[in-house]
Design a protein around this nucleic acid. Sequence first.
DNA 1: GCAATAAGGGAAAATTTTATCCCTATCTGA
DNA 2: TCAGATAGGGATAAAATTTTCCCTTATTGC
Lengths: 117, 117
Amino acid sequence: MYERKVIPNLNCGLDLIGEVLYGKWKIRLLWFIDQGHKRPSELQRKIPDASRRVLNMQLNELEKHELVTRKIYPVVPPKVEYSLTEFGKTLIPVIAALGQWGDKHEDRLRDVILKRL
Amino acid sequence: MYERKVIPNLNCGLDLIGEVLYGKWKIRLLWFIDQGHKRPSELQRKIPDASRRVLNMQLNELEKHELVTRKIYPVVPPKVEYSLTEFGKTLIPVIAALGQWGDKHEDRLRDVILKRL
DNA sequence: GCAATAAGGGAAAATTTTATCCCTATCTGA
DNA sequence: TCAGATAGGGATAAAATTTTCCCTTATTGC
């Protein structure tokens, strides 16, 4: 694993939420897990643009941060299911608010983002 | 400027909001500008852990994305003031929700973040 | 027997982001 | 006269993140 060389600040609520949500796919992972897509392979199919590796790494971090739990079924081929913890579930309304803002301003956002890409 | 080699996806609201909000200091910049800290030097003092350079770069992007406007006063020494656009202001409740979640779960977050740093 | 599926980690490369350092300009105050 | 405030960009270095490639295990289906 990579060792951070710069210690993060944890001064305010925004710093704290940033620490657990900052990662290219974390928000989507939480969202899809909440929607019932629990198995790693399902999540990979829902998020095809992410490499398998990063999804695993980010799922590990979400687990460390107690936002999701990982249940391993001792079968072959292996079966794993992720679920949101109670703590993780409290994030869903916040993520929903983010998505709603994005949806509401979809056209304008697409415009300003693509204008200067 | 740096040229991206991978085109972002803009499929859903979460992708879109991510494009404009993803950046280490952008959320804080929007927040502090909304609080009335408009001048670059003030913002730098409010966010001492960010380098001057990145704040400028991220302010430029926020401006391109029409979340803030930059007003230059033709005086010496130079004076510049940033303000939120109407569009930018619609983001404030969303950012507030993020901060509130972080504040509410401050102790637990600090705990899980520091446990495995 | 061979390919596909399932889950996931190690190592190294590529990409992206952020930091550091140095440069510009002009006015104010010690 | 020299330091400091003010705003900001270029070039490069460093850090962090993400991708790519390869490896493992055991079963099902062709």
